[in-house]
Design a protein around this nucleic acid. Structure first.
Lengths: 253, 253
DNA sequence: TGTAGGGTCTCACGTCGCGTGAGGGTCAAG
DNA sequence: CTTGACCCTCACGCGACGTGAGACCCTACA
């Protein structure tokens, strides 16, 4: 019934070393051990391994996978729905890359030079992982998380592209305000912060001003977010944070 | 005209550190340096960076990318066509993963247990990178390489899936012969080796017996191939090599 | 001229997820 | 008992950067 490490490795197309490593870091511990000390994996172990591999495939660090799977509120159905959503997004990105290759081929045939922005636009990383998992962890608002997973599970590639375009536009306009020396407390900036909050509410889950404030702090407190936002324009993460705070205060919170 | 490192980093959505690293390893050297020692990247540099990122996206190690781009016979059009092909294959794999998630959701709704093989089948790695790049390098048969790129550029997902299924079947049957204690020099094994050679000729490029012998040596001499083939059944890589050699000799080469 | 802020350089330690090999024990079949 | 395949733990090393340190560069402004 229980499988040895090589059987599992062959079945799951991972290496024995990887399974050792997963045991080591507490990510996937075999439920049993033979008298000789051999690792023995059960069906439940295999199911957990499947989840590990899905998350790994989606780029989650192993430590984070361990935390997610170990969370008392972990819910397999929600996880699968989220994984489905993230894979769909990946698919959209692949299409964008294919489009970029075709554009490069086209330029080559015509002997023209590609627009610099277009050359690289498909390589950008819109990674809801950073969004979703952090939100879940930071806010422990399981209902919001589930609502988000429910909604996005049904999104098509076009939905994702539209949503991304919307967010890009908001960020771009904020960057323009920053570039023009405007203050984050001005109405224009606050309006964009409001648009961002509504964007989240529309596409993911109801986002209160309190929650939005929390997100704003995260944008400057977590270097992954800061870096991603500042790639649009340096200083944008802080500017955005300030605009969001000002907007929340404008609304009494 | 020329861009500084942060401008390029922002444009290409990579880190400054990555660009330093690429300079360091000779993968992407800026064409110019300011008097202060600042790296300055030209349009040609950007085009090379695009190629680097395409290959990187496809999982090529940086050292290999450097070698590919530095090859005197490097041809941008062929590279783009190959990249297109590999991205298409990636897309097929994504669809398989989505199917796996759906299957897991289905099992969950029905309260059933997923078949162990089905749980993990989408995680396997059919990686033509290992096939194509090595063939190009080892054989220097640029015409065959180009022929392969030309053909596969037009393949649909279904084509890729059919091709993979064919190869899987050949490997499975070889594994069965091995398991039954048959010899690689028996007709049955040689016939399968012949089927493998024809598979390559049909799907990639004309594969002579000489070339097939070379590939066979590669299956046992390169651990990546050995490991991949032996995952089907331990010892299969060597068995396959022997069958291919026997088959070639059967045909006078 | 000095300062501030944003940018750049080189150097170098550290991280993550394993790959690889060493040395030794286990299991089943002949 | 021997052989071959499998298993264990231990530990160094790799690839691709991330991060920080210390020092220099550039521009605008007082």
């Amino acid at each position: 019934m229980a499988l040895t490490v090589s059987q599992v490795a062959r079945l799951a197309k991972v290496s024995v070393r990887a399974l050792h490593h997963y045991d080591e870091i507490g990510l996937l511990r075999p439920s049993e051990r033979s008298e000789a000390g051999y690792r023995l994996y059960t069906q439940a172990d295999l199911q957990r391994l499947q989840q590990v591999l899905f998350f790994r495939e989606l780029g989650f660090p192993l430590e984070e996978i361990r935390r997610i799977l170990g969370d008392p509120s972990f819910d397999l159905r929600s996880a699968l729905l989220m994984q489905r959503q993230l894979l769909s997004e990946r698919s959209a990105r692949l299409d964008a890359l294919l489009g970029a290759v075709d554009a490069a081929l086209d330029a080559l045939e015509k002997g023209t030079s590609m627009d610099q922005e277009k050359m690289f636009e498909a390589f950008g990383d819109f990674d809801p992982t950073k969004y979703e998992a952090e939100v879940k962890e930071r806010w422990g608002d399981t209902e919001a998380y589930k609502e988000s997973a429910r909604r996005t599970a049904r999104y098509t590639k076009q939905d994702w592209q539209r949503m991304k375009a919307e967010l890009d536009r908001i960020q771009k306009e904020l960057a323009e305000l920053l570039g023009a020396g405007r203050a984050p407390t001005e109405a224009a900036a606050m309006d964009l912060a409001e648009a961002w909050r509504q964007h989240i509410s529309q596409w993911f889950y109801p986002c209160s001003y309190v929650m939005h404030r929390g997100l704003a702090e995260m944008y400057v407190g977590d270097s992954r977010f800061t870096e991603s936002i500042d790639r649009v324009r340096p200083g944008l993460a802080r500017f955005t944070r300030d605009a969001i705070i000002a907007n929340a205060e404008r609304h009494g919170e």
